[in-house]
Design a protein around this nucleic acid. Structure first.
Lengths: 221, 221
DNA sequence: TAGATTGTTAATCGATTAACAATC
DNA sequence: TAGATTGTTAATCGATTAACAATC
């Protein structure tokens, strides 16, 4: 008997992190008029290995590549978009319209990956009512109502660290289930609420470690 | 014979990513007047396991905790700061002073982690000469000179995707060895140059996957 | 003392890489 | 056909978790 897989297989964290990169690359190829691409070409372009690429693609797509030819770009893109889009629940709310919040509102990448900022909120009357990247900024008082009415599940915290926990609590009370925290503090959430921290200082620390390691290696030689 | 470790042991990627979180938490405790803390307390506060915390701490610090008491907060902070600071080569340049670049320039977190934005650059005459977060924006023409004179090794790309590769190439020509790319494109670099991509859409995709997985699980029950 | 907590060694888990037969 | 490329199974690598003796 053929084994049956639901559409909703669990895809590894690392693979998910690479999916947007594949999608971007495939789109670029497609724009250049290409119809097919091999795992080798993708791998070389994105600094990955061909095996890794084939595994990743197999995890989101049922289409099989043809030896000596590769994969059909269009179908691949559709499958990745479907996965990212399917998962995305599409609607996201943003709290905090400072420089970072504004950058996020104007960021065109979200749409590409099936994400859509449904509403933005801030406590500051200077930005309330103004529009950034097509999004009007609402007062905090509207937060609960908007989230509830639109049944929104994903929230982005882009406020200063002192306000982060309060915003986080409000999100939880308003039915948000997954939070992306851009503030450089740990936020506490009840069990079952998902949090991802996006912290630039963290990534820089990583880069600095790799760099100092590299320099050490060179000195040893 | 006692085994000798250099100060420059390689610390795992995952551990490095957690170091800034420890540092932040320890600082908060220290501000409250605490002198010691156990791995258990840290773990609970940051949603980690105590074993993981002890391993991480041991990898950057030689100080040992006392059973029933825990670790001396001050010494721990000093060791983490030393590691992050030592590695950081402290000086960073930023190219691109749009909303995102401005957010980075005003971001107070860098200093905390031993990072310092030495100079900011942009091609747009509207921002050149202006100051954000204490950093004056220089014209692109000065980039090579500044990097060379100050011997800067780390660069942050915060320009639109269309300009990212050109900026990346300029960085490489100017002696930058490690690049943090905030633009949603893959940038190509010669072998030996380090790149970390920081892409918000990517993190959101991850969050969305976890969320849809969680919802699926609930439906199954 | 008793027991919470440390630090280390071993087991597990997850992701990457290697090997290789199948195939267009 | 010959050989590039696929897809899968097995081996390796790295990180997390479990187990437990040492100790304050």
């Amino acid at each position: 008997m053929e084994e049956f897989h639901s559409d909703k297989r669990l895809i590894s964290r690392q693979t998910v992190l690479r999916l947007p990169r594949y999608l971007r690359f495939l789109k670029a190829l497609s724009d250049e008029g290409e119809r097919t691409v091999s795992a080798t070409v993708i791998a070389n372009s994105l600094s990955l290995t061909p095996i890794q690429v084939r595994k990743d693609l197999a995890s989101v797509s049922r289409i099989s590549g043809k030896p000596r030819v590769g994969f059909a770009i269009g179908e691949l893109m559709a499958d990745i978009e479907n996965y990212l889009g399917y998962n995305s629940m599409d609607q996201v709310v943003l709290v905090g319209v400072g420089n970072l919040g504004k950058a996020l509102l104007s960021y065109k990448g979200f749409h590409k990956y099936g994400m859509h900022i449904a509403a933005a909120f801030d406590a500051n009357s200077e930005v309330i009512g103004r529009t950034f990247g097509g999004n009007k900024v609402h007062p905090m008082g509207k937060f609960y109502e908007v989230c509830n009415k639109a049944n929104i599940r994903i929230g982005i915290i882009a406020v200063p660290e002192t306000a982060a926990q309060a915003v986080c609590d409000l999100m939880v009370r308003s039915g948000i289930l997954a939070i992306m925290n851009m503030a450089p503090v740990h936020v506490n959430v009840p069990p079952g609420i998902l949090v991802e921290n996006e912290n630039i200082a963290t990534t820089l620390a990583l880069l600095a470690r790799d760099l100092s390691q590299k320099i050490d290696d060179k000195e040893k030689k």
